Simulated scan of single mutants.
Amino acid sequence: MQDRQPLHLTPLGGLQRWISRALIAAAVCEVGYLYISLRLARFVDERDSGAFAEEVSLQRADDLDNTVNVVGLSYIAVYVSAFILSGFWIYRAARNAAIIAPRRDRISPGWAVGWHFIPIANLFKPYQAIREVYNSSISPDRPIDTPLPKLFIIWWLAFLSSNGLGTLSGEIASSGSARAFSNALIVDVVMFPIALIALWLWHTIVLAISNAQDRGITPIPEISSTNPGSPQGGING
């Protein structure tokens, strides 16, 4: 075997810290979103039961509408920021992984991001890309299709579930009826802990891979699929 050469990897620590901040902000927005959903459901119930005069109802509706707009715009802005930052991180981490353990059959850095936008394929291809990145980051000798710790599948299922429930909630609430708001609130309550789990686990994964790559792992000229290295410094399953 030839001597290993020093790597020129793109440092991930700085980007990882920005992602951490964005994910914390996203968690705060999830709390705010649930809070405003509960307030909105309570207002609809009180309005329909005639708990206050029409003038008071209109004023409260206007105040609540302003709050909903602020929370909604903040929610969208934070999640878009987190998504963009994560996209940059995925691309750089995948590019580093390809340097650490070059293989022709691995998902390219561009497609590691691009698969998120392809229907059906976005249900499993992004997970495959992260699996390849993690395995190569832990050890250049490790096959890229090595099964991941359970934490990863929990993260991916929570991510898909929270996205699906968020879409479902919006569809239910779009009719504007009191019953629709009530049903949407039930979905929001179910979605809330799942979304927080997805955010926390994604932070854990980003941190683990960033730390592994920033230690400066060196590649080998060829990868042997029959003699995988043991995972070191990764997430224990």
Score class of each variant (00 low, 15 high):
86 S>V: 08
202 W>R: 12
182 S>H: 06
159 F>L: 09
99 I>L: 11
61 A>H: 07
44 V>A: 14
116 H>I: 05
6 P>S: 03
222 E>N: 14
164 G>P: 04
123 L>R: 07
84 I>V: 15
148 L>H: 05
228 P>M: 09
40 L>D: 09
127 Y>K: 12
60 R>N: 11
122 N>A: 06
214 D>I: 00
47 R>V: 03
169 S>K: 08
229 G>P: 00
95 R>Y: 03
46 E>A: 13
89 W>H: 08
111 W>D: 14
212 A>W: 05
15 L>Y: 02
4 R>F: 02
140 P>Q: 09
167 T>D: 12
49 S>P: 03
40 L>Y: 05
164 G>S: 10
51 A>E: 15
105 D>F: 06
41 A>R: 08
48 D>Y: 05
148 L>D: 02
162 S>P: 01
173 A>E: 09
100 I>Y: 02
219 P>V: 07
15 L>F: 02
157 L>N: 05
109 P>K: 04
128 Q>P: 04
90 I>H: 09
51 A>D: 14
191 M>G: 08
114 G>Q: 03
80 V>N: 09
138 I>T: 13
177 S>I: 05
153 I>K: 13
37 S>A: 11
73 L>Y: 13
55 E>D: 12
223 I>H: 14
183 N>M: 12
12 L>E: 06
169 S>V: 02
145 D>R: 05
53 A>P: 11
92 R>H: 13
224 S>I: 03
156 W>E: 06
170 G>V: 01
112 A>E: 08
102 P>M: 01
62 D>H: 07
15 L>H: 00
95 R>Q: 10
221 P>I: 05
50 G>K: 03
219 P>G: 15
202 W>L: 14
62 D>V: 04
140 P>S: 13
78 V>T: 15
171 E>N: 15
35 Y>G: 13
136 S>Q: 10
174 S>P: 01
133 V>G: 03
154 I>N: 11
28 V>H: 04
12 L>W: 02
141 D>I: 00
232 Q>C: 01
175 S>P: 03
146 T>A: 09
31 V>Q: 04
218 T>Y: 13
102 P>W: 04
214 D>R: 01
195 A>P: 00
56 V>M: 12
116 H>E: 15
5 Q>C: 04
50 G>F: 02
27 A>F: 06
222 E>V: 14
103 R>N: 15
48 D>E: 14
83 F>T: 15
149 P>T: 07
175 S>N: 06
136 S>P: 03
218 T>R: 15
62 D>P: 02
37 S>T: 03
155 W>Y: 12
135 N>G: 03
173 A>K: 08
18 W>C: 12
217 I>H: 03
236 N>A: 13
31 V>G: 13
219 P>K: 01
20 S>F: 10
146 T>H: 07
24 I>T: 14
196 L>P: 02
93 A>G: 08
53 A>L: 10
24 I>A: 11
222 E>T: 13
104 R>E: 14
87 G>D: 09
174 S>W: 00
92 R>S: 10
160 L>K: 05
94 A>V: 00
22 A>D: 07
42 R>G: 11
29 C>D: 10
230 S>Y: 08
116 H>K: 06
200 W>R: 13
203 H>G: 06
172 I>P: 09
69 N>C: 01
202 W>F: 14
192 F>G: 01
9 L>R: 02
181 F>D: 06
95 R>E: 12
11 P>V: 01
115 W>H: 11
194 I>W: 02
8 H>V: 09
21 R>Q: 11
134 Y>D: 08
197 I>N: 04
60 R>F: 05
28 V>I: 15
174 S>E: 07
